[in-house]
Design a protein around this nucleic acid. Structure first.
Lengths: 230, 230
DNA sequence: CCAAATAAACTACCATGGTAGTATATATAG
DNA sequence: CTATATATACTACCATGGTAGTTTATTTGG
């Protein structure tokens, strides 16, 4: 494991928070592969902080199911659970359809502006084939809608249930991804929201979220040791 | 703060887990009042363990929004947030209606048996006016349905979003609660699930979950310092 | 050469001491 | 008496050392 980062105490915020953010990001973006061993000692050496804050970070990551702690044996980056993938999808679709319906016609000028700006940024990313940033903008688009309804907490929670899905999306990033379709769907959702067409917004959202069904067998073949057997 | 508990190392499981379970239970059941200060030192004295595992427990509870940590100032039991209450309700209703619909007609003999046993236990509790246990059985009834659909994780997540609601339910426990109606609704849900009447199960669930709307102003008057102002 | 017993290495768990930052009580100046 | 300055107490944060449990490497007996 090599993250090549050091905690700079100049940075505002505790060492704990810094390590947490860094490790979380590393796991979700597969800089730390599923199944990787991460001992307190190793990580504390990497970050140049003592083991105490590292342990506390492990507890946080454990709570989010990003790592698994085996007492006296070791702490490992969680394997991707394909069953969790389905469950996360189901929750996301159910919740987002409900939220979209609430949001239709109720968004403020400011919220609509945020969405429109986001779409413009997505255009740029698509042209430049910056898929990594595209992924972030995609999530940010949907987060904005949740936030506009005062449901940011719900968004975070749903995202947490979709941590494994996020990792799969990163895995698929290299492959030819249907960004054109995705972007046009985002436009359609935006228009429907603006015009207060709840039913239509909900319908597009359903198609949108079902588009990204992944070929599980294919994934398991390509990255055999990233997944848990079920 | 006085929990009058000591960690017995004989108990299987780490001190950390024991303290976590105990504190979590204490907060949710208002043995620790919202706003209570809980310093590392105090808690570690109470449990007769060192401050290290206590800190790790605080991190876990913080992640669940059960405590708030102010660096160098103190750690406090979270106040109840009435806005979170609404959000939790919305998520619960949305998800449970979707799950109930999936479950209708698909439950195994074993699952139906569990539900029926649970209902029998509820009868006993109602007769004996054991409302505390009734609360647990209520949740267990709904958890069983989620679990039967392979959605235990979802249930836990939804529950976490409803932590504040749980505390309010405990507060209301003393008051005259409509247990008769609740129980009869449980029966109706059970029957609908058994007969595969998805629509009907969903409808009852909606009524069921909307029954427990609480009078916020009343609550704030009775327990003024338990809530955050919004 | 192989299998069982032993030794060494490694792990997360917990205890404890020191530190910088914050809040409160006390003392001091006006 | 009041407002400001100082001292004290308290907090969570981090560093570090020891420990029991686990895994791996080594040795021993056949």
């Amino acid at each position: 494991m090599d993250l090549a980062v050091k905690h700079n105490p100049q940075n505002r915020g505790s060492a704990r928070d810094f390590v947490y953010e860094t490790l979380r990001y590393s796991i979700l973006h597969l800089k730390l592969k599923p199944g990787t061993k991460m001992s307190e000692q190793d990580v504390s050496d990497q970050f140049q902080v003592s083991r105490t804050p590292i342990r506390e970070v492990f507890v946080r990551l454990f709570q989010e199911e990003l790592v698994e702690i085996y007492p006296q044996r070791g702490t490992y980056v969680s394997l991707i659970n394909l069953r969790h993938l389905e469950e996360g999808r189901f929750v996301r679709e159910t919740m987002e359809k409900a939220v979209i319906r609430e949001a239709a016609g109720e968004l403020s000028k400011s919220d609509l502006f945020k969405l429109e700006s986001n779409l413009a940024a997505q255009e740029v990313c698509r042209k430049n084939r910056n898929y990594f940033r595209m992924l972030a903008l995609d999530d940010e688009f949907h987060a904005t809608i949740f936030r506009a309804c005062g449901m940011e907490r719900t968004w975070s929670t749903v995202q947490q249930l979709n941590n494994d899905f996020y990792r799969v999306r990163v895995l698929r990033l290299a492959h030819d991804f249907r960004w054109d379709t995705i972007l046009s769907q985002h436009y359609a959702i935006f228009e429907a929201l603006k015009n207060g067409e709840g039913d239509r917004a909900e319908g597009i959202t359903q198609d949108h979220l079902r588009m990204v069904i992944v070929e599980k067998d294919e994934l398991k073949l390509e990255y055999p040791d990233y997944f848990v057997d079920i």
